[in-house]
């Protein structure tokens, strides 16, 4: 998949502003970014349900403007909201979705038990979807997206709103898909999800791509190796101080703490101790995507 100068405008609002990216067959590609960064609009254009305002897009070697139906025939889509058919049972939801793809009835019926098994919904096959829990509905929507054995699956915030057990179950199912060679495109604002799943990702902010790479590359480039989180006694806020200046390669001042980036945590710790700044606690950890995210999009969040 190739996007060049991809742009989407709704009237005055520019949701996606001339972004470029490539997705290779078989990889897991992520769009990371805060709400409103343009992730969903990008996904909808890739899913051939939203015309481009500008730029070019090739999905599965085809142009969504002219070959929308052909592209959608080979895609699986997991939208942000669970668009299940509330008037039908779990099985009928899978069945009719397969029929929407024009699959022969017998073929759909053969596929349903496998998908129920995959989504761990076999014992809920005849239930109305209205009685399913949020996690079950999400698994049903993911299973539904696989009915046509797609070459590429688009997942828009696949685990938002799920409890930790349900999230791990969904991740596990997605890993299984990648083992089968399916290309996955997902949006998320969960760092752990992006780190868990993505081979490569782009960070989006304000309708543009601000960084691109594998999670490891992004961490190395934007956060360094190790991180020291410094918290202050109640009533002390760091804002406006200069006591920690010069320590580490970079500092991020948040509402409740200061995050110091560097390559050697011990060195950072002793520098802070000797700075004379009154500190309540210090925590050393490895740099994560969260640090990348905060660096690239964070300032806006604090304001």
């Amino acid at each position: 998949m190739v996007a060049r100068g991809l742009t989407k405008r709704f009237g005055e609002l520019t949701a996606v502003d001339a972004i470029d990216f490539d997705v290779h067959t078989g990889e897991v590609f992520g769009f990371l970014g805060p709400n409103g960064a343009g992730k969903t609009s990008t996904m909808r254009m890739i899913g051939a349900v939203s015309p481009l305002t500008g730029g070019t897009l090739q999905v599965l070697d085809r142009d969504p403007a002219t070959d929308g139906a052909e592209i959608r025939a080979r895609l699986g889509v997991v939208p942000q909201e669970n668009t299940v058919d509330e008037e039908l049972s779990v099985t009928d939801n899978l069945y009719i979705y397969g029929r929407y793809f024009g699959m022969p009835r017998a073929q759909v019926r053969r596929r349903i038990p496998e998908l129920l098994e995959f989504a761990q919904l076999t014992d809920r096959a005849d239930d109305k979807v209205t009685v399913l829990s949020g996690g079950m509905k999400r698994r049903l929507v993911i299973a539904r997206a696989l009915i046509n054995t797609p070459s590429m699956v688009l997942l828009d915030e696949p685990t938002t709103g799920l409890d930790p057990q349900a999230r791990h179950l969904v991740w596990d199912r997605l890993h299984e898909l990648t083992r089968q060679g399916v290309t996955l495109l997902l949006t998320t604002h969960y760092m752990d999800e992006a780190e868990q799943l993505c081979d490569r990702l782009v960070v989006m902010s304000d309708a543009t791509i601000v960084a691109e790479g594998s999670p490891r590359e992004l961490i190395a480039t934007y956060a360094g190796r190790e991180v020291l989180e410094v918290r202050f006694p109640p009533g002390h806020r760091y804002a406006g101080w200069t006591g920690l200046d010069g320590i580490g390669s970079r500092r991020e001042v948040l509402a409740d703490r200061v995050i110091i980036y560097g390559d050697d945590a011990e060195q950072l710790t002793s520098a802070v101790t000797h700075s004379g700044v009154e500190v309540a606690s210090m925590l050393v950890r490895r740099a994560s995507l969260e640090d990348v995210f905060l660096r690239l999009t964070g300032r806006r969040l604090i304001e």
Binding site: A69, T83, V84, D85, Y100
Partner: peptide, 14 residues
């Protein structure tokens, strides 16, 4: 309410 058509249009249906 149902968002039914969103699901349909994600398939080859127009």
């Amino acid at each position: 309410w149902g968002k039914l058509y969103d699901a349909m249009l994600a398939t080859p249906l127009t």
